[in-house]
């Protein structure tokens, strides 16, 4: 009998780790880049960016099996294991300990944000064709509300943090970075990536404002 197939625990953890990067992290990066094109205006965004995606072949399969299902598995398993945390932030005020805590808290925050975000865009678009046809206008109406804009900014920053911090710990989990120096340098690289993705995301959000 294959030993690591016995160790479903190990495979689940590694699958959870992998899904965070591929496809979810890759999708988030694509999603932020795609929506950063909001700055080119309603016509370009609706006709070039959104409709090109909507007309993709096999789109529902991609949405279900490449985005939704891995995301649900990642979230469900993450929630299941987050109960193990007993963070003592004041006793151990180190950056990695704070990131460890925020990784779990942000996961829960992102889940709440995604219910709202996907619910008011993709799901609402299922029965309101107007949302699909003029996504730019729909997003503009949503984001003009300062509360929604604040929620989106928070959701965006939490997601970017969760991705890049996850990436830096993933490198340790899989054994890419072993020495303290390698872990530190890769951490800085992840911070740089996070700043870049955050900037692209905020740029995209601002592009929807009138």
């Amino acid at each position: 009998m294959n030993a690591s197939l016995d160790h479903i625990h190990f495979l689940l953890r590694r699958l959870h780790s992998l899904f965070g990067l591929i496809p979810i992290g890759a999708f988030l990066t694509f999603h932020l880049w795609e929506n950063s094109q909001s700055r080119f205006g309603a016509d370009h965004y609706n006709l070039e960016v959104v409709s090109a995606l909507q007309e993709m072949n096999y789109l529902p399969f991609i949405e279900l099996f490449v985005i939704a299902l891995p995301l649900l598995l990642h979230a469900a398993y993450g929630l299941a294991i987050s109960g193990q945390m007993r963070a003592e932030l004041s006793r151990y005020p180190y950056a990695r300990n704070r990131f460890y805590w925020l990784q779990r808290i942000s996961g829960i925050g992102i889940l709440a944000f995604l219910l709202f975000h996907v619910g008011t865009t993709r799901i609402q678009g299922l029965w309101q064709p107007a949302v699909r046809d003029d996504l730019y206008g729909h997003m503009q109406t949503l984001l003009t509300d300062p509360l929604v804009f604040g929620l989106y900014t928070l959701g965006l920053l939490l997601s970017v943090f969760h991705l890049v911090n996850g990436l830096s710990t993933m490198a340790i989990v899989w054994g890419l970075t072993t020495s303290a120096q390698a872990q530190r340098l890769f951490g800085y690289l992840c911070i740089g990536l996070g700043l870049l993705l955050g900037a692209i995301g905020i740029h995209g959000l601002l592009g929807f404002l009138p």
Partner: peptide
């Protein structure tokens, strides 16, 4: 194999307090 089971290596959360103390 023993550390690949439940309670083993993958239960580490990389908070890295251990190396500090």
């Amino acid at each position: 194999h023993r550390i690949m089971a439940s309670g083993g290596l993958s239960d580490c959360g990389n908070a890295q307090n251990c190396v500090r103390v």
